[in-house]
Design a protein around this nucleic acid. Sequence first.
DNA 1: CAAGAGATCATCT
DNA 2: GATGATCTCTTGA
Length: 196
Amino acid sequence: MKYFDRKFFNQSTLEVAKKLLGKFLVHNQKTEKLVGKIVETEAYSGINDLASHASKGRTPRTEIMFGPAGYSYIYMIYGIYYCFNIVTENKNYPAAVLIRALEPVNPPINEYAKTTGRNDPKPASGPGKLCRYMKIDKKLNSIDLTKNILWLEDRGLLLNQNNIVSSKRIGIEYAKHCKNYKWRFFIKNNIYVSKL
DNA sequence: CAAGAGATCATCT
DNA sequence: GATGATCTCTTGA
């Protein structure tokens, strides 16, 4: 079992987005560890990426994206849901990977349904649902992901280029030509992906 | 099924 | 004051 360090996150965002597929996100809670396998990601890179919050420049909210790699960027969307991102690349270059879907590991789907009353067969498929499943909210914004609260693990799952599909990113129609970038990545044939 | 609306608030203009 | 890196529910074919 390999834990990811800052060096891993400090690579090209597209690389990190692809390499995170098949890896595990862990949230250490007092009573239990919440765990999910990453099956879908999206890259947001540089101020010229009109889909990225950082395209508007440095603001209090996006400041974390301009910081060093390996920190969390969490924001509220549509007043209801949260989105979880991992900051990538060098300091002063704003970039992050949005985690879009997890294959539930712990709690298992049936247990999650029992305790929450949600009878969703894919309770962590989609950026908002995933944060709800992993109990990620704004309190975890801008924390160090190389420490022992929220982190990533390589559990030795092997994935080659043929198992990875790329497509346009979701929900960024406003982003002019950038909406056509194929910066969304997901594991081929994995049913926990949020959309085909 | 597909399409549309509503929920609801942090953030930036 | 408008809008969004979303999700769920309702409507109607």
